[in-house]
Design a protein around this nucleic acid. Sequence first.
DNA 1: TTGTTTTTTTGACATGCATCAAGGAATTTT
DNA 2: AAAATTCCTTGATGCATGTCAAAAAAACAA
Lengths: 220, 220
Amino acid sequence: MPVGFNADEMQKVDEVVEKRRRIKQGERLFSSGDAFTSLYAIRTGFFKTCVASEDGREQVTGFQMAGEIIGMDGIVADHHNCNAVALEDAEVCVMPFASVEELSRELPVLQRHVHKIMSREIVRENSVMMLLGNMRAEERLAAFLLNLVQRLHARGLSQSELVLRMTREEIGSYLGLKLETVSRTFSKFSDDGIIEVKQRYVKIIDADALKKIFNSQIAY
Amino acid sequence: MPVGFNADEMQKVDEVVEKRRRIKQGERLFSSGDAFTSLYAIRTGFFKTCVASEDGREQVTGFQMAGEIIGMDGIVADHHNCNAVALEDAEVCVMPFASVEELSRELPVLQRHVHKIMSREIVRENSVMMLLGNMRAEERLAAFLLNLVQRLHARGLSQSELVLRMTREEIGSYLGLKLETVSRTFSKFSDDGIIEVKQRYVKIIDADALKKIFNSQIAY
DNA sequence: TTGTTTTTTTGACATGCATCAAGGAATTTT
DNA sequence: AAAATTCCTTGATGCATGTCAAAAAAACAA
C-alpha cells in the first residue's frame, strides 16, 4: 500500500479488502476467461501469470511476489485474459474492483496509486519486450536473476541468495528460451564463477559480472 | 472517446483537451526521460513507441494510429519511459493527466474508460510477449498484418489493402526479427499467393491462409 | 534532371538456440 | 522404503534466423 494516507483514509482503503483467499501451490487464483471482479494483492506466496495460444503454447508473462497486484488484465474486457497460478502456497487480499474505483473517486492518492500500478505493469512489459526481442540467452537470464534478487531484496531478503520458485521450463517460457537452454546458461554462469547453482537454490557470486552481461558489454 | 456520456459529460471531457499539437514525420511527441504531464489522443497520423537499451539497441514496443491513446508509460515514474515518434505527419490532443484524473473522479464512466485503456495496453503487451517468445517468423508477420488490417478496418479502411507506415527494420524491431528476415517473409507470402507486396503497399489475397499461419496449423 | 541517401531485396554463409536423446537427481506417491 | 513421477543436466545434431554483402528500387535533395 502506498504512503500518503492519513489514518482515516487508511481505514477506508482497508475496507476495500473484501476478504482474503488462500491458494494452494499449483492452483489458480483466476483463469483466462473468468469473469473479472477483483484485483488481488499478494500477501504471501509467489505466482506466475501466463497466456496460452490456440494451439496450446504457453507464454509466462510474469512472476509476482508479495506486495504486488495482479488481475489488471481483466479490466478491459470484464474477463481475465491470463491464468494466475500459485507457485507456492499463497494468500491474497481480494479487492473488488468496483470498490477500488469507488474509493478512488474519493481519495486522489488512491486513484493515483492505482494508475501507477497499471503504468508500472506497462513499463515492465516494455522491458520484457526488449528482452525477448533483442537479447541473447545469457543476457536474458542475467536480467531475470538481477530483477528477481532486486525485488527480493526490497522485501528484506538477501541480495545474493535466492530460491527459485519456478521450474527451468517456466523460466524458459518467460524468457523465450527452452528449458535446456536455461539449464545450460545456469551451468555456464556457474562454470564462469558468476553464480552457484544447486537446483532451485542460486547464489550470486559476482553481481557486477551479471550486470555486465545484462548490459552486454561483452569482453571478447 | 467512449460511448455512455451524455451531452453535459461530453462537454466536460472535451474541456480536458488542453490543446492540439502537430508532429511532423520523424519528430517525437515525447522522449524517454521527458517529464510526464499528459496523455495524448492521436487524431491523425501514425506513431511508433520504442525503448532503447543502454548499449543502444532499440525495441519498437508498438505502433499506434488515430483514436489510440499514448503516454501511459509515464505515469508510474512521472517521466516517460519510451520515445513516441511520428511515422507520418500527425496531430494529437493533449490531455493533461491531472485534469483527466480530476474529471475521472467526477465521472465514473470516464474513470472506467481510463482503466480500460490501460488494461488494454497490458493485454496487448501480453500478446506481444507470446509472439516474441513462442512464434516463428512467419507467424509473427502474419499476426502483425492481421492485427494491422483489423485496426485499419475498424477505422473504415480496407480489410485487405494497406500501406505500411514503417520500414522493414521497424517491423523487424517490433517482431524481434532482422529486417532481412521481414523482407524474406514478405517475399515468401507473396510467392505463396497469400499477399501482394510492392514496397510499403500490401494487399492481402488469402486472409484465411494468414490466419492459419498465425494459429500455426502448419500443413506439412 | 542528376546525384545522394535510404530502403528493400536477394544470395551465401554462419551461428545461437532448438531438438532429440539419455541418464541422474530430487520430489512425491504408494 | 520402494516406486513413480517430475525436474534437471548434458551431449550430439539440425535448423531458423542472423550476418555479411551487393545490387536494385525508391525517396529525397540539389
